[in-house]
């Protein structure tokens, strides 16, 4: 099957103002097939957003690509110049963000901002924009309105229209519903599903909300300390997680408990990238740790359709 996005052994480092540079992504592998949705889940600081920004080549100045490949429609874009990548950004892959209000320019109308994104000119641009606005559930008058006149949900719909105006094959959604209310968020999730169906879109969906990820995506990748520790189908993640981190993350969901019970929590903290523990980076918090976990880093083990990085499933050391 055609792959819309493939990331191979991606490494990204962060160069702080003082001190040595630290690796933030430490060999991320993932792929999104045509019309598939992959959710990237994990806690703050696990590297979800950095992965997304790396694909869009929108990394901040103090972050660098180190190694690895990013293939969009089987074309390696890692070494493309900005000028060349511009032809891809928005056309083959686009992105929507967590807080729509900070990504819309307050002094331009919503319509003019969507229009601006249209690649190439020619007649019918405005008509196309209005048609798309209708498609994402907005009325024509939104075209002439300014961002402050729109609610958060409507702003996110404008962002979606902007992202989809050039018919990209892949949409990266970085926590698109986190800043929204429950019912509004539901509307956005439904809209994204509808757009996937209608436009044959593939989606990389980033979220820290495991239950949302399970609802939205076919496959879920769980990130921890700059690596994907488990990749599996949505049902498996929720019901039979393999990696101890996934298992514990799922057990933190309050809906898994009766009221009055105590929620099982994960002891310890997310590790600091400057001072990652030797061996498996999850071992200080892991209840199943063995002697090998302190020394070696687990490699990727195939498990059904997915992968897991844990010595519980065999001594497969990272090459």
């Amino acid at each position: 099957m055609e792959k819309m996005l493939e990331i191979k052994k991606l490494e990204v480092s962060f160069r702080p103002a003082v001190g040595e540079s630290v690796k933030i992504l430490r060999g991320v592998n993932l792929s999104v097939g045509k019309n598939e949705s992959l959710a990237l889940a994990g806690e703050s600081g696990s590297g979800k957003t950095v992965t997304a920004r790396a694909v869009m080549k929108l990394l901040p100045n103090n972050m660098n690509f180190e190694k690895g490949e990013i293939l969009i429609r089987d074309r390696n874009v890692m070494n493309l110049k900005e000028q060349e990548f511009r032809k891809i950004r928005g056309k083959d892959v686009s992105m929507i963000f967590q807080e729509p209000s900070s990504y819309l320019n307050p002094v331009f109308t919503a319509g003019s901002q969507v229009l601006e994104a249209v690649k190439g000119d020619g007649p019918g641009r405005k008509e196309r924009t209005i048609k798309l606005l209708n498609e994402v559930g907005l009325k024509e008058n939104v075209f002439y309105q300014y961002p402050h006149q729109l609610s958060g949900g409507m702003q996110q719909r404008v962002m979606i229209a902007m992202a989809l105006i050039n018919n990209p094959g892949l949409l990266i959604a970085d926590e698109p519903t986190t800043a929204l209310d429950v019912t509004t968020a539901y509307g956005i999730v439904e809209l994204l599903k509808e757009m996937m169906e209608k436009h044959g879109l593939s989606m990389l969906f980033i979220t820290h909300d495991i239950s949302l990820a399970v609802n939205f995506a076919n496959m879920i990748a769980v990130m921890y300390a700059g690596r994907i520790v488990e990749l599996a189908g949505a049902g498996e993640i929720l019901n039979s997680p393999l990696h101890p981190y996934t298992e514990m993350l799922v057990s933190c969901l309050p809906e898994k408990y009766k009221s009055g019970d105590k929620i099982k929590t994960i002891e310890g903290k997310v590790p600091d990238f400057r001072d990652l523990p030797k061996g498996c980076s999850f071992h200080p918090r892991c209840p199943y740790k063995k002697e090998i976990c302190l020394r070696e880093e687990p490699g990727e083990m195939k498990r059904g359709e997915g992968i897991v990085r844990c010595f519980k499933y065999g001594d497969f050391v990272e090459a």
């Binding site: 806690e43 820290h208 495991i210 514990m248 993350l249 309050p254 105590k262 099982k264």
Partner: peptide
């Protein structure tokens, strides 16, 4: 975050 939320909820209880 989810794991910290769980701890704070436990604390309140």
């Amino acid at each position: 975050d989810l794991s910290i939320q769980a701890k704070i909820l436990n604390l309140f209880i």
